[in-house]
């Protein structure tokens, strides 16, 4: 699979991004003939893309020009990668679990992504923030295989 969707960096496009993520994960699962764990796999991608997309939108509001968020889905063997990129100012990902009982809010999003995905890479390139999230779909083979 190698598919790209470009969406305006506005919150009202969030659901389009998440539906795309779910569907992409589903198409990928079907191509592997997976039987188990499809729902969890699709949900993980939906949630991860939801978090990254809304993050990009939140950081885009301060800018005057119109911005886009690009999401590319690519697969290799049993791994699916979602690459989310935006042209916002650089940000520094802090991935620790915030104190669940104290006030300063936030931090759950990035923490969730780390929990859901097998591999997460944050990087900045040519003025773009890139988040590459990869997850492996374990396809159980029938016994004796």
């Amino acid at each position: 699979m190698n598919t790209t969707i470009i969406l305006p960096a506005e919150m009202c496009y969030l659901r389009l991004a998440t539906v795309t993520a779910w569907t992409a994960a589903e198409i990928f699962s079907n191509s592997l003939n997976a039987e188990n764990g499809i729902h969890d796999f699709c949900h993980a991608f939906k949630l991860a893309v939801c978090e990254t997309f809304s993050n990009s939108v939140r950081h885009a509001v301060h800018s005057k020009e119109e911005k886009n968020v690009t999401i590319r889905f690519s697969s290799s063997n049993d791994r699916l990668t979602a690459l989310v990129s935006d042209s916002n100012l650089p940000f520094d990902p802090v991935i620790t679990l915030p104190d669940i009982e104290k006030y300063p809010e936030g931090g759950f999003g990035l923490f969730l992504i780390r929990q859901l995905m097998d591999e997460v890479v944050f990087t900045r390139e040519n003025g773009m923030n890139l988040v590459a999230m990869t997850k492996k779909l374990t396809v159980e083979h029938k016994q004796g295989n």
Partner: peptide
């Protein structure tokens, strides 16, 4: 049917 960290944050708040 679906909850993300923003929803979580509001519920926690």
């Amino acid at each position: 049917d679906f909850l993300d960290s923003s929803g979580l944050r509001v519920i926690r708040g």
